[in-house]
Design a protein around this nucleic acid. Structure first.
Length: 179
DNA sequence: CCCTGATTCGC
DNA sequence: GCGAATCAGG
């Protein structure tokens, strides 16, 4: 029996295939199962596949050898509270590369349903909150989406798609993202 | 707040 | 060789 988590020929081939196809490490990890995205990335690098189609900024990629916390961080970052991320195996989006669809609707007036509980006023608006305007700005009932937005972006992932009109999202069968 | 890949380093 | 922890960017 093949041990789950062992890099067999099949898994490596699938890994290379998916990686070459443009899938993200987390997605590949989710597809393979029993492996985290870190494992996938680690294997990818080990195979020498790193950099499938990333920015040419590689030239300016100084790798200052980090300190030496390695795996035994005597003390975490000074003042880091609630930052418990790390091996997050998730499958968010999936974009092969040529997913053209004639789904270019004439802009459906965002019939998106945003929970009121999510809506916030300018006072409660945070940097990481979606600034998608909702309602009439001239009325006191004007609110913002308030959903979490990718740092740097003014809107949440959902409204970003509407704002920038990239393309339709392609759902991907997600497996157990346990570990 | 979330995600992405890249790198390091203990096992 | 493997992968968690961590970094750095988006």
């Amino acid at each position: 029996m093949n041990e789950a988590g062992a890099w067999t020929e099949e898994r490596v081939e699938l890994l290379k295939k998916l990686w070459n196809d443009g899938l993200s490490a987390s997605q590949i990890a989710g597809e393979l199962g029993s492996v985290t995205r870190n494992a996938v990335i680690g294997k990818v690098h080990r195979l020498g596949l790193s950099g499938r189609a990333k920015s040419p900024t590689a030239s300016s990629t100084p790798r200052p050898a980090r300190k030496a916390p390695a795996r035994a961080p005597s003390h975490p970052m000074a003042g880091n509270a609630g930052l418990t991320r790390g091996a997050n195996a998730l499958a968010p989006q999936y974009q092969p590369e040529a997913e053209v669809e004639a789904e270019a609707a004439p802009m459906p007036s965002e019939d998106v349903v945003v929970p009121f509980s999510e809506r916030v006023t300018i006072m409660d608006l945070r940097e990481y909150m979606c600034r998608w305007p909702m309602g009439d700005p001239t009325t006191p009932e004007f609110r913002f989406c308030g959903a979490r937005s990718s740092t740097g972006l003014p809107y949440c992932s959902h409204h970003s798609r509407i704002a920038y009109q990239p393309a339709a999202d392609r759902r991907r069968d997600r497996r157990n993202v346990g570990r």
